[in-house]
Computed example of a mutant assay.
Amino acid sequence: MHNGRFHKMHGLGNDFVIVDAREEAFAPSPAQAAAIADRKHGIGCDQLIILSPSSIADLSMRIVNADGSDAQACGNATRCVVALIGRHVRIETVAGILEGRADDLPEVAMGQPHFDWEAIPLAYAVDPTDMPIGHGALERPMAVNVGNPHAVFFVDDVQAIDLETLGPQIEHDALFPERVNVNVAATRDDGGLDLRVWERGAGLTLACGSGACATAVAAIRKGLARSPVAVHLPGGVLTIAWTEGEAVRMTGPATYVFEGRTDWNRFG
C-alpha cells in the first residue's frame, strides 16, 4: 500500500493532486480517483497525477480526470511535474515522451500537433480546419490533437459564450469518438489570444495547457497570430511557441501549494 503522501500543485489555477509512486505502487480505480478529486468530500483537484517508473524515460505520468476517466495529455500538469522534479526531465505519457526544463518559469515541449482527421480522432473523414458542426453560438471549429483532442472556436468575445452549457454538448458530440476539449478564443489587439476552455472530463477550468497549445497552433495556422503567442486564460498567461513541423513549446508558472498525507483506503 502506498504511504499516502501527495503534493498539491497548480498551473494558473488548474490544480492537481500529484502522487509519486515510483517506489510504492499506487493504482486507484476510476471511482477512487473521482473520490480523491471531489472538492467537498475528497482532497479536490481537476486531475489526479500519478508518477511511476519508466523504462524509456525518467518517469511515467498517468493523468486521471476529476470524473475518473484517463487523459492522454495535460500541459499544466506536465509543467508542475517538471517543477516538482526540479531539473530537465523526460516524461513518458500515453501521448508520447514529453520533455521539460525547470527554469523560473518551467517550459515543456508538448510534441508535434496532429491535424489528420483520423489522428484527432474524428468519427468520419471531414476537413479538420473548418468542421461543419455547430452548437448555439459556436460553429465551424478547427480540430487539432496536441496529445489529446481539441476543438477550437474563434469568436468575438469569449465572455459572451455560455460555455458551461455548450461545453458538455460539444464534448459529447458524435463527431468526437473519444470526446473533445472545447476551446473558445478571441484575438487581442496586442497580438495575443483570450481563451476559455471546457476540459474533457473536468469541465470549466481556470487554465488548460493543452488547450492553450491547441488554440495557439490553430490561430497561427489560420494567420490570426504569430509565434510566440501570449494566451490569456482566466487563471493567467501562458506563452506558446510553435513552428510548422516542430514541437509545441509552452512556458508558464507552476505553483507548489502544500504537501499532505492521507489514508487512500478512505476513498473506497
Rank of each mutant, 00 (worst) to 15 (best):
H2Q: 06
G4V: 03
R5G: 00
K8C: 06
V19Y: 03
V19C: 00
D20V: 02
F26T: 04
S29N: 00
Q32S: 07
A37S: 15
R39E: 01
G42I: 02
G42L: 01
I43N: 07
C45G: 11
I49P: 05
I49F: 02
I50W: 00
M61A: 13
M61H: 12
N65Y: 09
N65K: 08
D67I: 04
G68Q: 09
D70M: 07
Q72K: 01
T78A: 14
C80F: 11
L84H: 11
R87L: 03
R90T: 07
V94K: 14
A95T: 10
I97R: 13
I97P: 13
E99T: 08
A102R: 08
L105T: 13
P106L: 13
E107K: 10
V108P: 05
V108C: 10
A109S: 15
A109H: 10
G111C: 10
G111D: 10
H114Q: 15
F115R: 09
A119L: 14
L122Y: 06
P128F: 10
D130I: 02
N145C: 14
V152M: 13
D157H: 14
V158C: 09
V158R: 13
I161L: 05
E164Y: 00
P168K: 10
R179E: 10
R179Q: 13
R179D: 00
V180F: 09
N181R: 03
V182K: 06
G191E: 14
G191R: 04
D194F: 11
W198K: 08
E199N: 09
E199S: 09
C213A: 14
A214R: 00
T215R: 09
A218H: 08
A218G: 14
A219M: 09
A219L: 12
R221W: 04
R221F: 07
R221Y: 05
G223L: 05
P228N: 04
A230E: 14
V231F: 03
H232N: 11
P234Q: 01
P234F: 01
G235K: 04
I240N: 09
A241W: 01
W242S: 11
E246I: 08
A247Y: 03
A247H: 12
V248Y: 06
R249K: 12
T251N: 06
T251C: 08
T255F: 07
Y256L: 06
F258E: 03
E259I: 00
D263V: 03
F267L: 03
G268E: 13
